[in-house]
């Protein structure tokens, strides 16, 4: 018989809401988000941290949720793709992706959007090289990346005064 395996309390702010759950220590942040909180926007592509589909922001920093233990995000704020839209309004990143046709099957899109949010928060007017470097860990099998780069570039060219939602 295996020994009883104690669970641990996991608490965090997820998309601005406090959550508290009992989880097993080996549960990844992606498993907690998808299977327990039913936030299925973040995708599992490879499960090994090489495709970028599960990228979320933890305290503003991109983290591949499939290789992050949920307990490593204990007490921190987690932003997923579900948290981008505010008050029923899509975020500027989401609008740009739609306007530029940067979404086909959509599997990579949640990760791409979080990478975009991170890039623009540090570098509001990135050039194409910076955009391509930022999304270099995000695999897209549909778009050929060109439309995604265009969408991010358009955000960078927006009027400097425009507020982020």
């Amino acid at each position: 018989m295996d020994q009883p395996r104690p669970k641990q309390i996991f608490g965090a702010q997820v998309n601005g809401q406090g959550v508290e759950l009992l989880i097993a220590p080996q549960e990844t942040l992606l498993e907690v988000l998808r299977d327990r909180l039913e936030l299925t926007g973040s995708k599992e592509g490879c499960g090994e941290g090489v495709c970028g589909a599960c990228t979320v922001l933890v305290d503003g920093q991109p983290r591949r949720a499939c290789l992050t233990l949920a307990l490593e995000a204990q007490g921190l704020s987690v932003l997923t793709v579900e948290g981008l839209a505010q008050g029923g309004e899509l975020s500027r990143e989401q609008r740009a992706f739609i306007e530029h046709g940067a979404i086909q099957c959509g599997y990579c899109t949640p990760g791409m959007l979080m990478a975009t949010r991170d890039l623009l928060s540090r570098e509001p007017f990135p050039d194409e090289a910076a955009i391509r470097r930022q999304i270099s860990g995000h695999v897209c099998r549909c778009t050929g990346y060109a439309k995604i780069v265009e969408a991010v570039a358009a955000l960078g060219q927006a009027a400097p005064g425009e507020e982020q939602p």
Partner: peptide
């Protein structure tokens, strides 16, 4: 090493 948003942050 890895990619900017995946490995390099952590």
């Amino acid at each position: 090493i890895g990619a900017p948003t995946l490995q390099q942050r952590v």
